[in-house]
Design a protein around this nucleic acid. Structure first.
Lengths: 339, 339
DNA sequence: TTGAAAGCGTTACCAC
DNA sequence: GTGGTAACGCTTTCAA
C-alpha cells in the first residue's frame, strides 16, 4: 500500500510537491512532475479515498435513492446515471428505499445523514413530509428525477403533455370510448399517475367528451395492466374502443389481456402507452417516448453544476415526450353494436 | 457539523471516552455513557464516514459489480444484496460494468483499485483474463453470484441440474422434439448458458435421444426469445413439440411468438423456462424456480463472514432449482403429421 | 474507568 | 517552484 509519502520519497520531493504534481493543482515544474508521476506509476500508487475525502471534504461519490431498481424506468435511469458518473470518475452509492419499508426509514434516518456523498439524486421518491424534512437537512445538492419538488432541481418528462398527446392521437383516430388504465388510489407513483391522468382528462374535455372520461385503477406493472384490462374488457357490452396506459408496461399488459380474450389489436381495440419501453417494439405499441437513460445523464449534469457552484439556483428540466406511432392504434371501426 | 470533540466537550469527557461510549467498545461507566449518548443526541452527532474509515481501515461499504441492472435476474439480486446490507448498516457502491464497454475497463483499472469497499460482490461478471488478474490484486474478499470461479466464493443455482430437470419434465410428458432456445455464440452469459445447455443435452442423451438434440441461439432477453422462436416455429414442417428456454424471459418470448403464429400453448407446443420470473405466473409458465433475491442475501452473508475472518477458506453455495408446474406444458399430442 | 497523544493518508496554506 | 506543517475527524494504544 504505497502512500503519497512513498511516492514523494522515491521522487526525492516532499509530500506537498508530490500531491501537487499528481493532482495538477498548483505550481510544479514539468520535470519534477514527470519524476513524481513515474514514481507513482512504479509504486502502483492509488490515493486513499478516505484520506482525500477527509482533507478535501469531497467524497467523489454520488448517492442515488430510488424505490425500485427492478422496474424498467428506474433501471434505465440508474444506468444513465451510472454511465455519466463513470465518465467523471465518480462513485455511485445506491439506496433502495421501498415505500413504507423499514429499510426506507433506516435510509432516511441513518444512511442519508452519514452524508457519504457530495450530492444526491432522488428518483421517483415521492417523499412524505417527515422524509422531506430529513432531506432538506442534508445540506448537499439534490436533484429529483420524476415528479416535482420546490426545493430540489428536477429532471423529468412532461407527464401531463404526454398523456394529453396520447389521448389526442386516439381522438384523431375517431375514438370516443377511451379509458385511462393505471394508477392505484394510493400509489407511490402518485405524482406521475396524477399528471398523466390529468393530461388525459384535459384532452377529453377539450374534445367535449367529459362524459366519456373513465379511469380504471391498476398496479403500475405489466401484470397489473394485464389484470386490470382483463377485467375491463371481459364485459363485451361496455367495452372501450381505446385504452391509454399510464405507462408502456400497463399498456402491454392490456394488449396481452386483449389477445387472450380474442380481441384484435388494433382492429377492435387501440392501445397507446407512455415510455417506449424495451418491449414496445415487440408489441408494436404506439407510445409517447421518453428516454430515462437521458434523464439520468441530465440529472448528473445538473447535480455536478450545483456541486461546483453551490449558490446556483435550482434548475427544472422538463422534456417533451415524442409520439411514436406503431401499430397498436388504428381508426375507430364502425361497430355493429353502435346501432 | 458537530464532531466527536463537540460531543466530548458537552459531556465533559475526552474524545477517547466519547468514542468508546458511542461505539460500545472498551470500558465506560454506564453513567458517562449515558451522558455522552445524550450529548451526541442533542447535537445531532453523526460520525464522519471518511474519518472512521481512515482510522479503522474499514469503509463500511460493499462494492457490487454487475454487467446489467435492467434485467430481471440482476435487478433481483441487487435488491437482495441491498436489503441485506441495509440491515447491517452497510453502504453499497454499484459498478455497472457492461461487457466490452469503455466504462468496464475504467471500472477495473481505476475504480476497483481505489478499494473504497471492504468486500466485493461480482454478479454474472464472467471476467476475461486481464480483468481476473486485476480482481485478484484487489486484496479484499470477493464473492461471485452466478457462474463459477476458483478464486472467489460462489453463490449460484445449479444450472446444469435445472436444465436437466426441465428437460426431464418434458420427456416425461412424452415429448421428443425438444429444442433448447437461448444463448448467443459469444454471450457474456457464457458460463450459465453453457451449463444449462449441458443439462439439457445430458437429459436428452440419458433418454436415448441424442439425435434429437437441437440448440437455437438467441439473445438472452424476452425480445430475443421472441425473435428466435418466431423463426424456429415459422416452418410448420419441422416444428418441435416442446421448447426449453435458457431462462424465463426467453421462454416467455417464445410463448408470445407461438401465440402470434396461432400455435396453441400447451396443446401444440409445450414451453418450460428457468427462473420463475415475475411474468411467469401471468403466462402460466412451467419453470424451474430460482430466487435471485435470496442469492443476493446469501452472497452478503458469505462476504461478511470472509471480511470478519479473512483466513476463512472460500465457500461454494449451489442451490437446486425447484420445478413449478403451471400450464405451459402438457403431454405430447398425437399429431396428424406423425403418420 | 478515563484521558493524552499518536496515528490514518491526504490536501492546502504559508514561508522560503 | 518547493517544502514544512497544520488541519481533516476519528480510533486506539498506553498511562494514569
Amino acid at each position: 500500500m504505497a502512500g503519497i509519502a512513498d511516492v514523494a520519497a522515491r521522487a526525492g520531493v516532499s509530500k506537498a510537491t508530490a500531491s501537487r504534481a499528481l493532482s495538477g493543482v498548483g505550481y510544479v515544474s514539468s520535470t519534477t512532475q514527470g519524476r513524481v508521476r513515474r514514481a507513482a506509476e512504479e509504486l502502483g500508487y492509488v490515493p486513499s479515498a478516505g484520506a482525500v475525502g477527509l482533507a478535501t471534504g469531497r467524497t467523489q461519490n454520488i448517492g442515488v435513492v430510488m424505490p425500485y431498481v427492478n422496474r424498467w424506468f428506474f433501471a434505465e435511469v440508474l444506468e444513465g446515471i451510472q454511465q455519466a458518473l463513470l465518465e467523471q470518475g465518480l462513485d455511485l452509492t445506491l439506496y433502495d428505499a421501498k415505500p413504507g419499508s423499514a429499510g426506507r426509514a433506516r435510509i432516511f434516518d441513518d444512511f442519508l445523514a452519514r452524508k457519504r456523498f457530495d450530492g444526491l439524486i432522488a428518483v421517483g421518491l415521492e417523499p412524505v413530509d417527515r422524509e422531506l424534512e430529513l432531506l432538506t437537512r442534508i445540506d448537499r445538492p439534490i436533484v429529483s428525477v420524476v415528479g416535482s419538488s420546490d426545493l430540489t432541481s428536477v429532471v423529468a418528462v412532461d407527464d401531463d403533455y404526454a398523456a394529453c398527446r396520447a389521448t389526442e392521437h386516439l381522438l384523431a383516430l375517431g375514438h370516443r370510448e377511451i379509458v385511462f388504465v393505471g394508477g392505484a388510489p394510493a400509489s407511490h407513483w402518485a405524482h406521475v399517475d396524477q399528471q398523466r391522468l390529468a393530461g388525459y382528462q384535459r384532452a377529453m374535455e377539450e374534445a367535449g367528451l367529459s362524459a366519456f372520461v373513465r379511469h380504471v385503477h391498476s398496479e403500475v406493472t405489466l401484470p397489473g395492466g394485464y389484470a386490470a384490462a382483463a377485467d375491463l374488457l371481459s364485459d363485451a357490452r361496455d367495452r372501450p374502443t381505446a385504452i391509454v396506459g399510464v405507462c408502456d408496461e400497463v399498456a402491454i399488459g392490456a394488449i396481452i389481456a386483449a389477445r387472450r380474450l380474442g380481441i384484435q389489436v388494433p382492429a377492435d381495440l387501440s392501445v397507446v402507452g407512455i415510455d417506449d419501453h424495451e418491449f414496445a417494439e415487440m408489441f408494436a405499441l404506439t407510445t409517447l417516448q421518453q428516454v430515462p437513460r437521458e434523464q439520468g445523464r441530465s440529472a448528473v449534469d445538473v447535480l455536478l453544476s450545483e456541486i461546483a457552484e453551490p449558490a446556483r439556483e435550482r434548475t427544472e428540466l422538463r422534456m417533451p415526450a415524442r409520439l411514436i406511432v406503431r401499430s397498436s392504434t388504428a381508426p375507430r371501426r364502425e361497430q355493429s353494436s353502435s346501432l
